[in-house]
């Protein structure tokens, strides 16, 4: 069976859910081979997890210098593996860095590229949801092999345990790979909440929340549900919540099991980032708010009354 390369996206020494999703999709096309690119010691701590989700092989490219550069080490390794091994496809989690790796790799290989793919058929036909969730497009790479980035939360990762063989890959970076250098990586404390794009529940607040201080209400409900916190652009632009939690056209695309929108009107650009959520719940005091057009359950009311009451109910339910 042909090999399907899956670029592993690690985060703080762990395999991200988006990687496990890509491995799950890869199994539909061939035999998944995970590609780990990073500083020495990274692969050994994650090989078991990759095997659990069906990686028959783990390619390991490790070097002290890889951490100094963005994108180019991954590109160099994937380029070599594609040229040497004739894989059936290359799958990359669709994060900012993942898309950049894919773009650069496409130029090096003269290969077409498709981003934010939500599913991939055995014949390489990729499905994308575009224009704020309003249109479904099926496309294919017509030059080269399917080189696609997989949108987070497109599938539920399912285990398929194997014991992977580990194969080292030696790649030396060229001059052009070293043009931009990472001077510093700053980790910001983010507490115990799940990653926004990976969470199965997201609770978001909008302009209606009114202030940064009031966002505690959104966080409280999120924590009771084990959810990640999101925000509309109006909320991030007003400084109520940090920008990296913005959901929508210019923010993150989320597709959780449950999305709770508090004080969010539901502008097209916000919907663009949450429309494919399985279940949507909204609280808004305006009966005409467009968010209600897509909410499975809506409460027309003041969020400052509804949310504390809901929090209290959940506590009672849990007790």
């Amino acid at each position: 069976m042909a090999e399907v390369l899956v670029l592993v996206k690690p985060s703080q020494g762990k395999v991200t859910k988006s990687t496990l999703e890509a491995l799950t999709i890869a199994r539909g096309l061939g035999e998944p081979a995970a590609v780990v690119v990073g500083e020495p010691g990274l692969a050994s701590s994650i090989t078991d997890k990759l095997g659990e989700y069906g990686a028959a092989k783990v390619y390991v490219a490790e070097s002290d210098e890889f951490g100094d550069y963005l994108v180019t080490p991954q590109v160099a390794v994937l380029e070599k593996l594609v040229r040497d091994g004739e894989p059936a496809a290359v799958l990359i989690p669709s994060t900012q860095e993942g898309k950049e790796v894919a773009g650069r790799l496409a130029v090096r290989l003269g290969n077409g590229v498709l981003t934010d793919v939500v599913s991939l058929d055995t014949d390489g036909i990729a499905t994308q949801v575009v224009f704020a969730g309003s249109t479904i497009v099926k496309s294919k790479v017509s030059r080269g092999i399917p080189l696609v980035t997989i949108r987070p939360s497109s599938v539920t990762p399912t285990p398929a345990p194997t014991t992977p063989s580990v194969e080292p890959v030696a790649v030396a970076l060229g001059e052009a790979d070293r043009l931009a250098r990472v001077k510093e990586r700053v980790t910001e404390a983010k507490g115990a909440r799940p990653e926004l794009t990976e969470a199965s529940i997201v609770v978001s607040g909008g302009r209606g929340v009114g202030s940064a201080d009031n966002f505690k209400l959104v966080e409280e409900l999120a924590d009771l549900l084990g959810a990640a916190v999101g925000a509309s652009r109006a909320a991030t632009d007003s400084g109520f919540y940090p920008h990296q939690f913005q959901v929508g056209q210019t923010g993150k695309t989320v597709s959780p099991q449950l999305y709770v929108a508090l004080g969010i009107s539901g502008a097209i650009q916000h919907r663009a980032g949450m429309q494919t959520s399985k279940t949507i719940v909204a609280v808004n005091k305006d009966n005409e708010a467009p968010i209600f057009e897509l909410a499975d359950f809506g409460v027309v009311g003041d969020l400052f009354k509804v949310v504390p009451q809901a929090a209290e109910e959940i506590r009672k339910h849990k007790a």
């Binding site: 985060s11 703080q12 963005l70 994060t95 931009a180 250098r181 990472v182 001077k183 510093e184 990586r185 700053v186 980790t187 910001e188 983010k190 990653e195 990296q244």
Partner: peptide
């Protein structure tokens, strides 16, 4: 996702 990077 974790914070920010300074790149030069």
């Amino acid at each position: 996702e974790e914070g920010y990077e300074v790149v030069t």
